[in-house]
């Protein structure tokens, strides 16, 4: 069970949250090629290790925020606002 630090509510158990997938995915312009759109829609880095992802405190305050989480140990390394850049990583 993850203990996730909602920026608004503080630490709460994982089943109050919903993982919204990869963070920092940038929508291409309408003029982009089919391949670029396919990458945007379906491509994933899928790292074994630290991954940036979006979470929503859906059964709490409803806030969306970003998380850096290790996909092997599931340890959460950083929590930061949804519009912020990926921070220099806390080791």
């Amino acid at each position: 069970m993850l203990n996730i630090e909602c920026p608004h509510c503080g630490a709460r158990p994982e089943h109050e949250f919903r993982c919204g997938g990869d963070a920092h995915v940038v929508r291409p312009p309408l003029s982009a090629s089919g391949e670029t759109w396919a990458e945007y829609l379906f491509g994933h880095d899928n790292p074994k290790g630290d991954q940036t992802e979006r979470w929503c405190h859906s059964f709490g305050c409803g806030l969306w925020f970003n998380v850096i989480r290790d996909t092997v140990s599931h340890e959460i390394r950083a929590v930061y606002p949804i519009t912020a850049q990926r921070p220099e990583q806390a080791a």
Partner: peptide, 13 residues
């Protein structure tokens, strides 16, 4: 499980 993982174990919820 509800989030990406390379851990060969399931979570409790």
């Amino acid at each position: 499980d509800l989030y990406a993982s390379y851990a060969q174990r399931g979570n409790l919820p």
